[in-house]
């Protein structure tokens, strides 16, 4: 174990500030995605700038409807849980010297929250009592089985590099060299995992157009608002978490540490949003072999390299 980190814990009241940062990043992602969509269609850009407000107002006014015999309890747990999982992820992310909860197993905490998404998305698919939604839920689990183990072993690398699972220690251990520089494979697999658990870009097939929206097919009103917000929030949370994990935490010139964290996360998040239009969809049954035959060995070799470097350096 390395030295105890010197972070100030702000506790639950501070969670509001963390939630605000998460919301700002998520809104930024929605706007950027809208602008890119408008540009590729040659449509005017202005409506996409206010899309968040317009869509929120529309969905809040829309009456909730549910298919016959929908399992409403399970369905609403699924639609409202994604935002909660994203918020719990960022609660352990230090902004400069401050953190909501300085959990000593922060990396495992993040992993647990992203596994919670397995349950939430499948429940979202099940609860609607609609074949399209259910198929979407199963597609997500098929993708999840493929991306989760490589993601887990990608999370191991920074933990081994810093000899700690505490996010503050991991960020502090990068004062010399950012982990992204000498753990590129782990970082790439981590990014792939984040995009996948956010049902985004190439991994958006559980909510695909070919399934009439898949897990989102029957959602309406505030349920749809929460589920969509959860998807963007998860993407933003993954980008925020990458900062202490791989991108040196709050380290950077001129700006204060607490500001560098959202700035770095914003850049990574923009890349995630751009990836949506740059990469083709992945067929769920095809990802399994890629995940376990290519990514898993690659990231295990990465872990081995990190472990050897740490052991040699002493």
């Amino acid at each position: 174990m390395s030295d105890a980190s010197s972070l100030t814990t702000v506790g639950l009241p501070g969670l509001l500030l963390w939630a605000a940062a998460l919301l700002a990043l998520a809104v930024g992602a929605v706007v950027l995605d809208g602008v890119l969509a408008a540009r590729s269609e040659g449509a005017p850009l202005r409506p996409s700038l206010t899309r968040v407000v317009d869509e929120t107002a529309r969905l809040l006014r829309q009456r909730r409807r549910a298919p016959l015999s929908a399992d409403t309890l399970v369905w609403r747990v699924g639609s409202s849980g994604l935002v909660v999982a994203a918020l719990l992820m960022v609660a352990v992310v230090p902004f400069g010297d401050h953190v909501v909860s300085d959990l000593d197993v922060g990396i495992v905490w993040f992993n647990t929250m992203d596994v919670l998404v397995w349950a939430l998305v499948w429940l979202l698919g099940w609860g609607a009592n609609s074949a399209h939604s259910l198929v979407g839920g199963y597609r997500f689990l098929a993708l999840a089985l493929a991306y989760e183990l490589p993601l887990m072993f990608a999370l191991v690398a920074p933990g081994v590099g810093a000899a700690s699972l505490r996010l503050g220690d991991v960020a502090a251990a990068q004062s010399g060299l950012w982990f992204v520089v000498w753990m590129p494979v782990a970082f790439a697999v981590y990014c792939l995992g984040v995009v996948a658990f956010s049902v985004w870009g190439p991994f958006a097939v559980p909510a695909g157009h070919d399934l009439a929206g898949g897990v989102f097919a029957e959602l309406s009103g505030v349920d749809r608002l929460l589920a969509q917000a959860g998807r963007y929030a998860l993407l933003a949370a993954g980008a925020l978490f990458a900062v202490p994990l791989f991108l040196g935490g709050g380290a950077g010139p001129v700006l204060p540490g607490w500001l560098w964290v959202p700035v770095k996360a914003g850049v990574l998040l923009a890349l995630f949003v751009l990836a949506r239009r740059a990469l083709p969809s992945v067929r769920p049954e095809r990802l399994m072999e890629v995940g376990w035959v290519v990514l898993l060995p690659a990231v295990l070799v990465q872990d081995l390299v990190v472990a050897v470097v740490v052991a040699v350096r002493g």
Binding site: V108, V115, L145
Partner: peptide
């Protein structure tokens, strides 16, 4: 037992997601 507790939640949620299928 923070590690054991958080890992228990992780493993059990994952296990139940697969078990449902």
């Amino acid at each position: 037992q923070n590690y054991v507790g958080v890992v228990t939640v992780l493993m059990m949620v994952m296990e139940m997601a697969v078990m449902a299928v």
